[in-house]
Structure formats: C-alpha cells, structure tokens
Amino acid sequence: MLIPSVVSGVSAGLGGFALRKHWRLSSVQASAIVALVAGLSLPYVHGEGTYLAAVCTCASYAAMSSEETIGRPSQMAIVSGLSGLIMYIAQNCLVGVGGRLGSCAALAVLAFAGWQFAVRVFQSRWGSLRPEHSAK
C-alpha cells in the first residue's frame, strides 16, 4: 500500500494546490473539497478506499500551507508524497484521534521546511567559504 498511498497523496496535494492557486479558493474551501471528493468516491472504487481517502485528506491539509512555505507545484508534490509516506508508516499511531491526519501533514511540511532550512544554511556557509578558497 506504500505506492498507492504516495500516489494518491501527491494527486490530492496537487489538486488542493491547484484549487487554491487557479480557482482562487480559500485554503479551507480547497482542502474541504478535496476531502469531500475523496471521502465520497474512493471507498467505492478501491478496496482500501477508506485509508486512501484519509491519505488524500492528509495531503489536502498539507496543501493549506502558505505561499512562503510551499510556493511551487514541485514542492507541493514532494510534501504530499511525504504525507503519504508518513500516513503509511504511522498507520497504527493515534488511531481514532481527530486531528491525526493534520498532525501527519504538519510533520511532512515541517520536515520539508527543515530540509529547506538546512540547505539554506549549508549554501550560505559554503557560499561564504568559496571566495576565501578561491582567493587563496
């Protein structure tokens, strides 16, 4: 179920992102539409549809991130895929607790933000060393 989880997460995340960017919906409306469509359709078209609907909903919450946090579709795809991965790993965690999907989405977004932060720090340190290195 790992691959269907990641694929459905990426699709839902990009769907939510598109609804916000191109249809100018608010983040609440975009996420709610993705959740409603996934919740109504997937349980009837796939054996594990209920789980996949939860993954799609989780990715739609990640798509509620601000423009500064996730600005490009490629970034949204990475974060949504990460949401699907976290949902797969954490299937047996916080079972039945409302907000579980949002927590998984937040972890995916925070991990992505952490990765970007680490890359920025690495580039600024490496960038500042480079001229000194070339001057020698």
Partner: peptide, 18 residues
C-alpha cells in the same frame, strides 16, 4: 507557532482531543 504550516489546525485538534 507553526504559522503557514499546513496541518497546523489538525495538530491543534489532536492536542485538544488528547
């Protein structure tokens, strides 16, 4: 806290439920 992070509302909900 976590401004602009998607899933922030769900985290609040989960904390409140716990």
């Amino acid at each position: 806290v976590f401004d602009g992070v998607g899933g922030r509302l769900g985290t609040m909900a989960a904390a409140a439920v716990l």
